[in-house]
């Protein structure tokens, strides 16, 4: 490239050929600072390579011990625990749906037109939505003692605000036209809901409930660890005594159940669509 060309290029696009050193410097400084902060955090957390290595070594031993997986002669009990976990998930989801349904209807802008009321209602739902089921479970298990009851209520309490919000949105997003058509036939408001609104929103709501059932099955397994029984409790017990052949067996079984539930729920949802 001859000097003349360079000069011309400079004239046409000065920024392209003269990278802003300041900006480059800032970018570099930011990158270095971020990397330094990251390393500092790792150090602060005592993430030493030695302990990482020894941990993975132990994990390898666990894995070796876990082969072949075994039910430890406790298969019936494990199956019952799995069923119990599913039972918690289903009971929690049903209760949450029953409570969320009226709340969702009240929360819909098209049902309660008063804007201030609507705002306050939605905001309070938002606030409760921040509390995860685990926190509810800790409170409820200490209030009601160990057992699935607290777990069911915890799942329901964690779901209600989110479900109510989704239900409200489903109602708000419903098409007005069929409602107009039904009203024009002179039917009562209740029948207008039955024939104009329900056919539109019930499938949407059912599909959302199925989603929550799936996620509750996962959460229910966790709640067992804090004392709500079910498969989480069985797992914790076996991890504590390093019975990893049984741990792997249970986890495998649990994953199959999750996959099966997901498949059933997905096919149901497709039929609803």
């Amino acid at each position: 490239m001859n000097p003349g060309q360079l000069a011309r290029a400079r004239q046409v696009a000065p920024e392209a050929l003269q990278p802003s050193w300041r900006r480059r410097l800032i970018n570099w400084a930011l990158t270095v600072a971020a990397a330094a902060a990251f390393v500092a955090m790792c150090v602060d957390l005592q993430l030493a390579p030695a302990s990482v290595l020894s941990g993975f070594g132990k994990l390898g031993t666990f894995l070796a011990n876990s082969m072949p997986p075994s039910d430890g002669g406790d298969l019936p009990r494990i199956l019952v625990a799995l069923a119990e976990t599913f039972a918690m998930a289903l009971a929690g989801t049903v209760i949450a749906t029953l409570v969320a349904l009226p709340l969702g209807v009240i929360g819909a802008k098209t049902v309660v037109g008063q804007p201030v009321l609507h705002f306050v209602f939605r905001r309070s739902l938002d606030w409760f939505r921040g509390v995860p089921s685990l926190v509810w479970a800790l409170i409820l298990v200490s209030a009601f003692g160990l057992g699935p009851f607290g777990g069911v209520i915890a799942l329901a309490l964690a779901d209600i605000p989110s479900l109510a919000k989704l239900f409200s949105e489903a109602i708000e997003n419903a098409d007005e036209k069929p409602l107009d058509g039904v009203r024009a036939a002179g039917v009562s408001p209740l029948m207008a809901l039955r024939y104009g609104l329900a056919p539109q929103v019930v499938p949407v709501m059912a599909s959302q409930v199925l989603f929550f059932l799936e996620s509750n099955f996962r959460n229910a397994a966790v709640l067992g660890i804090v004392g709500a029984g079910g498969i989480g409790f069985e797992l914790e017990e076996r991890i504590r005594i390093f019975a990893f052949d049984q741990v792997v067996f249970i986890i495998g079984l649990y994953m199959i159940c999750v996959a099966a539930l997901d498949m059933v729920s997905q096919s149901l949802r497709q039929r609803l669509a």
Binding site: A83, A87, M88, V94, G147, F149
Partner: peptide, 10 residues
Amino acid sequence: LLISFQRSQF
């Protein structure tokens, strides 16, 4: 559902 409520000792 019935079994679920029963099992979860609801």
